[in-house]
Design a protein around this nucleic acid. Structure first.
Lengths: 144, 144
DNA sequence: ATGAATGCAAACCTTTTGCATGTCA
DNA sequence: TGACATGCAAAAGGTTTGCATTCAT
């Protein structure tokens, strides 16, 4: 099942309507794939596909998409909220470079040991998919 | 050396001035100890100690305090920034409960293996002291 | 037909900034 | 005295909301 089919399916399932605006926004998210984007950036991209779509609509749609888990809201540490298209993928952790702002996906499996350890030591159940680890990426480490 | 002595010391060292406002703000942070607070909350607390201190001053002071590493800015995921008094302690990672908002300190040593692993696999150098791991705390896990 | 979605504009909220005034060193 | 800190008010900037209108179902 294609991504768009899945999208239509989920909308119907949850009683949301299919509108040209929503299609354009999903299309734009599709373009940036796994990259994280601001609502503003999506608004720009959408403007090229279908001009005249309001920023408020972008926000409302992102909100709706996160309800159907098509999009995930990322915690960037700054004041801007970041969004990421996840489509059918599982949520996964990220590495966030404090210098260049780049975000890298990490295999959840890499963190299994950490997860077990924290569970054992503190009884704490971590949300691996929500984890964003700050630090310095290889490129920035060398460039300074 | 007491916390306040250390505070005075650090101010002098970095050329910052000691003002009643700054003392009151540090006092308020002292009251909430390891808890995370918003600038707004600090402003309330400070208002009880010494009325008339402006919110802008709270912000400017928190900024200054984070420069001398008396306070740490925490990434809550929401739109509000959280602050935590760290005083003389070294920065350390935290566990953040998504349900009750409680924040727990973690021994940096617990994360050494993770740190090495990410360094090896991705060349990524993590800021252990800045790491905040989201999840569910023991109490909230049981309460639902 | 009718309730949901949109566009527009205004409101909101947290944080930041400019500027005149006050104050610590 | 002189640079730094404060209070006040206004600006900024991202996000949300109210409302009349349009549109998908």
């Amino acid at each position: 099942m294609s991504c768009f089919e899945k999208f239509h399916e989920l909308l119907k399932e949850r009683g949301f309507r299919l509108t040209p605006q929503r299609e354009a926004i999903v299309e734009a998210l599709h373009q940036v794939q796994g990259d994280t984007v601001t609502a503003e950036r999506i608004h720009e991209l959408v403007g090229q596909l279908e001009p005249g779509i309001d920023l408020a609509t972008v926000y409302r749609t992102l909100e709706m998409l996160s309800q159907i888990e098509f999009v995930k809201s990322i915690d960037s540490g700054g004041k801007v909220r970041l969004w990421q298209f996840v489509g059918a993928e599982d949520p996964h952790p990220h590495l966030l470079c404090r210098s260049c702002g780049m975000l890298f996906g990490v295999e959840p499996a890499e963190l299994e040991q950490l997860s077990g350890q924290l569970r054992e030591l503190y009884g704490f159940d971590i949300d691996i998919g929500q984890l964003t680890i700050p630090g310095l990426c290889p490129a920035c480490r060398q460039g300074r």
